[in-house]
Design a protein around this nucleic acid. Structure first.
Lengths: 194, 194, 194, 194
DNA sequence: AATGAATGAGTATTCATTCAT
DNA sequence: CATGAATGAATACTCATTCAT
């Protein structure tokens, strides 16, 4: 029973992702999402409080998963630069391999309500703090400059990668995003190293 | 006559900026902008094709000005690293000294229609190309690494600064943005230098 | 079996009365009544045709009982004025001692559908006819005026008492309703007596 | 200009009255009222805050007028019993000559929202207080019994007349309401007189 | 008999845009 | 040039009822 309920919830979230990716945020009516999920409009409200709750859940679910994978990926790393490599690899490869998610998170969901953007902010914050932790670790290891302002630098790193992904999407995904990892890292590590 | 027309057009754009900055994008109704500008609702449509045209014009006007100032500021520079310093200085100081503009461009206008975001993209593209030119110049001068991917790196630079400004706004402008220039440049130049 | 069926039916009616009294007519959803009765939503429809049927049944049951008690109470009376006293006493005391019923019948159920109000009308009609009978009896006894229009007068009597009860409820039940019997009768009997 | 605005407002109120009288409260959608008034749906909201505001305004306007006429009518009366006659005459004749208003106020608007019923209550209260004043006057004049409880008696008078009107409507207006004045007064005055 | 998950019809309100004055 | 009253399309959400289990 519980799993069935979970399944239908996931079904609706998946439908929402598809609809937003295909038709854009402003054309993602509840009835359209319901139709895509193969359920009645009212059924949506058995699983979500309101429309915003669908979108917030979608973002938290998918990006929450992603952030969890970031944490896992750096668990086995031996040094800060290796950890940073893992982060950049994941950041680019995950969004490249899941275009719908990338499009929805990078483009569509940013034009949403205050409440949703707050929820997005919360998840992104977790990710940015992860980057900060890697920076601190690098400084402790003597690998990164001791005079780094970690609060500022984490923004430069995240903002840089974020812009690369967004630009790649808007330009029509004409090149490999994963192929940008080495050049990105080269730039970042030179900026960080002691 | 022409100047009078220009004046009223500017009056409306200024009103739009104020209303969006004060009440947010979703509360910026045409009638509210008209009231703020001291004109009738219908008058708006003598100067702009539709609501989107107001916002596009606003963005192009103000950010176009800004980009022009970027061009001017680097005209008298002798080297690419000095030019990059000017760019970063302007980027942070202009937005710090014009909070309404910063808030509207960084936060509010990003939740807008596809058409508007395209127009925003056009202006931002000009700016990003300016950065690219500086990078090319630096490489020619032998100041920056010859193996730099300028198309990628310009995104890392712009994205980094952009995120710093947005984060500063969201966090409540509790510190000086201009004071971040040196640390930002330190990171950037280490990443760029040959 | 039959009694068990009756019991559950009564259980649901009692739950409906409680829910309407507590939350008002517009907040008395079928699911809420089902929850209050401790049964599933679907179970309701094994005992009632639809929601309206619950409310009609509720009104007929409880007010039907009440009217039956009116009939009983005047059975042992010797004269029309004594019968009228019994009626007024019962009318005030029964509703005073059963506030939930009073509130539901006087306030909440009046804002309901045409169908329900028709059903209410049927029950109230029986009561009004009872009053009419007493009036006829009084005329026969030579106690009441022979020129009374019993069809009109029964409405004046019922409407008067009804308004007194409703007003007492709306005003917050700050005084004794039963204490109004003597003054009410004084007014009525003066109007009726030959 | 002001009168034109007033006219359209009245036009909408009149349309609302017609629609409710014809189709009932639950079928009185805003779009139906707009169509009946010959205006666009949105135009309604230039004159009223929301749907409830239409109904409250309708009730206050029309019944407010009626109560004002009650005040006027008793201004020139010489005694309390004459005043009471005027009240009863107006009560019956006004509602008889304006069936739509009668139907809407006696039947349809009673099944409405709490807010509306509060507004109704306010207007009715004014009327009931008017009756009370007449009763006090009658006592002072020595015309009515000194031991009358005016707070109770005003309810018996209003409730009686109210029930007569409602019953007349529900029964299909098969007889003259105005013809009930004399018999009603006969009953009331016998109950009141010293 | 009992359940409760699923259904889907129905409606008030906002606001960009027009056009008669 | 300027006005502002009027327009009308477009959409989230509730809840009585059903029916497979």
């Amino acid at each position: 029973m519980a799993s069935r309920k979970k399944e239908k919830r996931q079904l609706i979230l998946e439908a929402a992702l598809q609809v937003i990716a295909e038709h854009g945020y402003h054309q993602a009516q509840v009835s359209r999402i319901a139709k895509e999920a193969g359920v009645a409009d009212g059924t949506i409200y058995l699983y979500f409080k309101n429309k915003e709750d669908i979108l917030v859940s979608l973002f938290q679910d998918r990006l929450g998963d992603l952030v969890a994978r970031f944490h896992e990926s750096i668990r086995d790393t031996d040094s800060a630069d290796e950890a940073l490599r893992k982060i950049c690899e994941l950041h680019y490869s995950e969004l490249e391999s899941n275009v719908a998610l990338a499009y929805v998170t990078q483009i569509e969901l940013r034009q949403s309500s205050l409440e949703l953007r707050k929820a997005i902010g919360e998840v992104v914050k977790t990710y940015i703090q992860l980057i900060e932790n890697v920076l601190r670790q690098g400084i402790e290891e003597g690998l990164f400059r001791a005079d780094l302002d970690v609060k500022l630098t984490r923004l430069l790193l995240f903002g840089g990668m974020d812009e690369v992904v967004t630009s790649w999407l808007i330009a029509g995904r004409k090149y490999s995003l994963a192929a940008q990892v080495e050049k990105t890292l080269e730039f970042f590590l030179r900026g960080l190293r002691a």
